[in-house]
């Protein structure tokens, strides 16, 4: 069964009288457990598509179905609830809450989901261990390297056992070694947990980790097929 289906999704931004078409009718489906790279040049619509799939934004037209349920017309609170339990995010900038420790950042989605103390603690420790940061649990973001911050973000994205993790250019601000480390962790967790990963990138080294590549160009899918990329 498809975890995510997008059907004829369009997104048009209006700035004054000028219209910009970020997506021009995208149709695709992503199965559970896939590790998909969304590739394309800048301005091709990768980030916009991720934001719509992640219920951070709404399409101008078209339908978004998550586990068969149309979620494209939910209101802001309903979308927030959906994000809270279903979707994990990893952003290009190391999007941790500055005032909280690594432990607390990973714990935050669990708190928002109302998880009990014991379950929360076990899950956070498990995930920090999984990303190799058990020793850094009590460090705040400004005390962590970029790679470490992004690994915390990956752990946080997986904390509520989401249906999918959406990652927008997760290695763009990392050096090669750290980028490789983050991608290996994401791939390993994808295999271990079966969570669907969909990540936007234009880095060929990152694409090489994908089990499927979706090519976007000018707001349309240029090439939609599952394959282990040869790049």
């Amino acid at each position: 069964m498809s975890a995510i289906e997008v059907e004829q999704i369009t997104k048009t931004y209006k700035i004054g009288t000028q219209e910009t078409h970020a997506l021009r009718g995208v149709t695709a489906s992503f199965n559970e457990g896939e590790f998909t790279a969304l590739v394309g040049p800048s301005g091709s619509g990768k980030t916009t598509l991720l934001q719509i799939i992640g219920c951070l934004d709404q399409p101008t037209s078209g339908a978004l179905r998550i586990k068969g349920q149309d979620v494209s017309r939910l209101n802001a609170d309903q979308r927030a609830d959906l994000r809270k339990g279903t979707i994990g995010f990893v952003f290009q900038f190391f999007a941790l809450i500055p005032g909280l420790t690594a432990y607390e950042n990973v714990e935050l989605p669990l708190l928002l989901n109302g998880e009990g103390t014991a379950a929360r603690k076990a899950r956070v420790l498990e995930l920090l261990d999984a990303v190799g940061l058990s020793e850094r649990a009590n460090h705040r973001p400004d005390q962590l390297s970029g790679g470490e911050q992004q690994r915390v973000a990956v752990a946080r994205a997986l904390s509520v056992r989401p249906l999918m993790v959406l990652a927008d250019e997760p290695t763009a601000n990392l050096d090669t070694e750290n980028g490789k480390q983050v991608m290996e962790i994401m791939r390993r967790l994808n295999q271990e947990t079966g969570v669907t990963f969909l990540f936007a990138t234009h880095d060929p080294r990152v694409v090489s980790y994908a089990t499927r590549v979706v090519q976007l160009r000018d707001g349309r899918i240029d090439d939609n097929h599952s394959a282990i990329p040869t790049v």
């Binding site: 992640g54 951070l56 802001a76 609170d77 927030a80 609830d81 994000r83 809270k84 339990g85 995010f89 952003f91 900038f93 999007a95 941790l96 809450i97 500055p98 935050l108 989605p109 928002l112 989901n113 946080r156």
Partner: peptide
């Protein structure tokens, strides 16, 4: 502002 965006992405309501 960005922090608000992150919290919102994590499911925090307005």
């Amino acid at each position: 502002t960005r922090e608000m965006g992150i919290l919102s992405a994590l499911g925090m309501k307005s």
